[in-house]
Computed example of a mutant assay.
Amino acid sequence: MYTFIINPNARSGLGGRVWEQLEPKLKESSVPYRAFFTKYQRHATAMTRKLTSDGQEHTIIVLGGDGTINEVIGGIKNLSLVTVGYIPIGSSNDFARAFALPRDPQKALAAILSPASYSYMNVGLLFYKNRTKRFAVSAGLGFDAAICHQAVISRMKVILNRLGLGKLTYAAIAFHRLIHLRPASMQVTLDGKKTLSFSKVFFTVAMNHPYEGGGFRFCPEADPCDGLLNVMVISGISRIKALLLLPFAFKGWHTRFHGVYTYTCKEVQIEGDIALPVHTDGEPVFLQHSIRACLEPEKLRVITG
Rank of each mutant, 00 (worst) to 15 (best):
G214Q: 00
T195Q: 09
E71F: 10
S91A: 09
D226R: 02
W19D: 07
Y2R: 03
L276Q: 10
R162M: 13
K39M: 09
I87H: 01
I147M: 04
P88N: 04
N9C: 12
A206K: 03
R97S: 00
I89A: 00
G16S: 10
Y118A: 06
G282H: 05
L63Q: 06
R17H: 15
A111D: 04
A10Q: 05
A96D: 00
F202Y: 13
R42I: 09
M186H: 01
G259M: 03
L163G: 03
A174L: 05
F216N: 07
G166L: 07
T132S: 10
Y211G: 01
Y128P: 09
G124S: 02
W19K: 09
S238E: 00
N230Y: 13
S138Y: 09
A139G: 05
F37L: 12
T83Q: 04
A116C: 14
Q288P: 05
N93W: 02
K157A: 11
V72I: 15
K194V: 11
F99N: 05
K129P: 04
V31L: 08
G124M: 10
I153T: 15
T255W: 07
G140W: 03
L125M: 15
S92L: 08
K200H: 15
L63G: 06
N161A: 11
V158H: 11
S199A: 11
D54S: 07
K251G: 14
S91I: 03
A116F: 13
I234N: 00
I147V: 15
T68R: 03
G16R: 08
C265Y: 02
K194A: 13
S238N: 02
T189P: 11
K25E: 11
V137D: 03
I153Q: 14
L79R: 03
R97M: 00
G15L: 01
A145G: 03
K50A: 15
S117M: 06
I73D: 00
G213P: 02
A111P: 02
C294G: 11
L244T: 13
T45L: 08
L246R: 04
F127H: 15
S114G: 05
C265I: 01
F4E: 01
F202E: 08
A46D: 15
P24C: 09
C148N: 05
S91V: 07
I76E: 04
V72Q: 03
H209D: 02
S12K: 12
A139Y: 09
G142W: 03
A44P: 09
V231P: 10
V158F: 12
L243I: 12
